[in-house]
């Protein structure tokens, strides 16, 4: 830089007339600089003059509203818990079914375990949800009856109990299909007739099967709900006109003479 430095040039340059910005220009720039410092954080809406109190009032209103909403929510929560029906509500549902067969002529000792089983074999899968008590007591309840039944009936009851236990434990449709298949396999073991075996195999692919319909009718008959059983049996014969009902099953599904009952 020393090469470029020339005192004479610099002096001559300094001799040029001095120019300065106007006073008005100075004031404009300095005022802008001071305004910039006065509002370090520019608000979304610039408060002006005596309207500044609006912002304090607005903030207070928002605070009060927030507290009110919070309190309201806290008050509503216990009410919601009270109004929500408690989970045990479905439990008493089977009780009317227990009472229902009481006026019937059938012995109460037989009726009770069968009634507990009835929801399990309802034709509508949704009706299985009001599940009966745990499967273990069911097995115990069925056991005394086995002494009074014939061998075929005992096998049938055991199969029904096992299937009911599986259905109660089911949690998903896929498991339901597995349980049905397992139940049908058990049924084929209990009733080793050729037709029953065939129906057990087909039951793996189609539900409800004629066998299940018959079982449901037998259940109704055992519960003393003869009218419903008759209707169901008539419906069954319409749907399966060529189906030959096994003798053992036929005795269970058809209405017995009054003297026999």
């Amino acid at each position: 830089m020393t090469d470029e430095r020339d005192p004479k040039v610099s002096q001559r340059y300094r001799d040029l007339p001095g120019e300065e910005p106007s006073r008005a220009l100075d004031q404009t720039i300095l005022a802008a600089a001071h305004r910039s410092v006065d509002k370090p954080h520019a608000p979304l809406v610039v408060p002006a003059g005596r309207h500044r109190w609006y912002f304090s009032l607005g903030a207070a209103a928002i605070l009060v509203l927030a507290v009110a909403v919070t309190l309201q929510l806290e008050r509503q929560q216990p009410d919601a818990e009270l109004t929500v029906p408690p989970p045990p509500a479905p439990a008493p549902a089977p009780q009317p079914q227990k009472v229902q067969p009481a006026p019937q002529a059938a012995p109460a000792a037989k009726a009770e375990p069968q009634l507990q089983r009835s929801p399990t074999f309802a034709p509508n899968p949704g009706a299985r949800q009001p599940a009966a008590p745990a499967p273990a007591p069911m097995t115990d309840a069925v056991a005394p009856r086995a002494d009074e039944e014939s061998a075929a009936r005992r096998n049938e009851e055991a199969r029904l109990a096992a299937e009911k236990a599986r259905v109660q434990a089911e949690a998903s449709p896929s498991e339901l299909r597995k349980e049905r298949a397992a139940g049908d396999v058990a049924a084929s073991r209990a009733a080793p007739s050729p037709r029953a075996s065939n129906s057990a195999v087909t039951a793996q692919y189609a539900a409800p099967t004629p066998e299940r319909e018959l079982e449901r009718i037998a259940e109704l008959r055992q519960q003393g709900r003869d009218e419903e059983a008759d209707k169901a049996l008539a419906e069954f014969r319409k749907r399966y006109p060529d189906y030959r009902i096994a003798e053992v099953m036929r005795q269970k599904v058809e209405r017995k003479p009054a003297a026999a009952r």
Partner: peptide, 19 residues
């Protein structure tokens, strides 16, 4: 936030920058 500092700075450079 010291606006006075800007005043000093401006006074120091105003003439030269303007020229």
């Amino acid at each position: 936030g010291d606006a006075g500092a800007f005043d000093t700075l401006y006074a120091r450079h105003r003439t030269r920058l303007f020229r």
